[in-house]
Amino acid sequence: MNDILDMGRYGAFVWPCFALAAVVLVWNIVAARRLHTAARQQALRRVAAKAAA
């Protein structure tokens, strides 16, 4: 386990890169899903307002 973390003394460079990649992937998922949810809710509100009018 220590060998994996140490990465041949390059752990301080290797792991931040993989952490950053994880952040970018997760951000993409979260941002895209939030965008879609917000757009859908806004569309639903417009449809409801139209139906009420």
Binding site: A32, R33, L35, H36, A38, A39, R40, Q42, A43
Partner: peptide, 13 residues
């Protein structure tokens, strides 16, 4: 996913 959101915004009417 983002395309679906864009379509919802653009086609709102």
């Amino acid at each position: 996913i983002r395309l679906r959101a864009e379509i919802l915004k653009r086609e709102r009417d």
